[in-house]
């Protein structure tokens, strides 16, 4: 199947005084139509910068972003909003309280992207479409006249999902969509997202540091560390047989119920600086429990360790 999104050698650098911060460094991956891909990594690893490039609100320094085989990386971010592609990549933001305009009703919040990206509408067709979307995400239609502060966390999350789905995107980027929700509501929203993906055939890029949640929702997982993808593969393979020591540390750090993990793999030290990193040193060196001299001499490249499973470590697969 042809990929929906194909990212090749994508980089973004920011100047810091006379130096350069490599926020995203030659990242390549693809997402198939209808596929759910998880993107995990700690804060500062470049997840947000990557997402901002994919949603085309930030211009890449290098590399290509191909969407349905068309290059969209070269369209300046300021002009992308005016193209018909804007509707195809939509985003659900992390905190529904901060990302919803407090002076818009739920109706207007859902209608706004429709008015801007779809149409023309009449009052009747717009109302019909907004109500259809509300029903789709399980938001009672009576609540459409309410303002965000009159809605519960779960209801606000539903508004955020409905307004992203309104313009009929083919790729939905979800940035920690359940991080602000209580577990009691989280399960409902996760199920809703899973149902919608099957029903609408839309692809998900699911950004999260809650690996238990990623595991539930995603077919494939990308693990990022300091601007690079260090491991990628089918969710089951990555979770059950992590090949990169960072992924192993990440999995060991998740607190979980009832499962005795024995001796925990503890990470020590701080991450290396992303400012002018040495191209010949593994980015995880210094924090890695298995660092050896060759880790400081050659940066490991992604290499296959299983079916569709890759890791960037000299010791992967050993």
């Amino acid at each position: 199947m042809r990929p929906l999104l194909d990212v090749l050698d994508l980089s973004r650098r920011f100047p810091v005084g006379k130096q350069t911060l490599h926020a995203v460094d030659r990242v390549s991956f693809s997402i198939a139509p209808g596929e759910a891909v998880g993107l995990v990594g700690e804060s500062g690893c470049g997840k947000s910068t990557l997402v901002r490039m994919l949603t085309r609100v930030l211009d890449p320094s290098d590399g290509s972003i191909r969407f349905e085989e068309r290059e969209i990386g070269y369209v300046p971010a300021a002009r992308f909003t005016g193209t018909s592609d804007r509707a195809l990549v939509q985003m659900v933001f992390q905190d529904p309280t901060d990302s919803l305009n407090p002076r818009f009703t739920a109706f207007d919040l859902i209608a706004d992207p429709l008015r801007r990206l779809k149409g023309p509408w009449t009052r009747a067709t717009l109302t019909a479409r907004v109500e259809e979307l509300a029903r789709m995400v399980g938001l009672p239609v009576e609540l459409l006249g309410r303002f965000p502060h009159q809605l519960s966390g779960g209801q606000k999350a539903r508004v955020g999902i409905a307004r992203a789905l309104g313009p009929e995107p083919k790729l939905l980027i979800l940035d920690e969509p359940t991080a602000a929700l209580d577990v009691s509501v989280q399960a409902v929203v996760l199920r809703l997202l899973d149902d919608l993906r099957r029903q609408l055939g839309v692809s998900y890029l699911f950004v999260s540091h809650d690996l238990n949640v990623v595991r539930l929702l995603c077919d494939r997982v990308l693990v990022m560390y300091l601007g690079r993808i260090v491991e990628s593969g089918p969710a089951d393979a990555v979770f059950d047989r992590p090949a990169h020591p960072y992924t192993r540390a990440l999995l060991a750090a998740i607190p979980s119920l009832g499962e005795d993990k024995g001796e925990r793999l503890r990470l020590t030290g701080e991450p290396r600086s992303p400012i002018d990193p040495s191209p010949t040193v593994c980015r995880f060196h210094g924090r890695c429990p298995m660092g050896e001299p060759r880790c400081a001499e050659a940066m490991p490249a992604l290499r296959p360790v299983g079916d569709g499973h890759e890791a960037a470590c000299h010791f992967a697969g050993d």
Partner: peptide, 17 residues
């Protein structure tokens, strides 16, 4: 509360809201 918490070995369909 325990039944609704995501944890290894539990599928999405098994989480009870």
């Amino acid at each position: 509360l325990i039944a609704t918490t995501p944890r290894p070995g539990v599928a999405l369909a098994d989480l009870e809201p």
